[in-house]
Amino acid sequence: MSALVEVPLYELAHARSGDKGNRLNIAVVCRESAFYPALSATLTAERLAGIFASRRPSRVVRYELPKLYAFNFVLDDVLEGGVNASLGLDGHGKSLSFLLLAAFVSVPAALLEPSRLRSAAE
């Protein structure tokens, strides 16, 4: 059992937001397939609800897509009414994928070593 380290999700995954009305979805795609099990364990719907707590989601659902090494998160009522009603500049929530990627997640240290070594060698 390898020790856990805290890293920004950004180092393990990329993401894209989409909107429909007041509902936001964020697709999180593992940079490497090997990251999927660790993110599956730590990046739960409850965790997402915590990260977006200030937006008071009424419901958060995680859908798993193991064949795509991806997760789809759906957050209800987090866009202040959506693009036609929000007073904010980003009524679509397009920038919120990067807010999620900035969150820290705990993953086994061993998981990161190959990719760290590779980026160091480049």
Binding site: A27, Y63, L65
Partner: peptide
Amino acid sequence: RRTVTEQVLYEIHDPA
């Protein structure tokens, strides 16, 4: 794979 995966899930709710 990455560009396509991001778009497969764009504006999707329940992927099933």
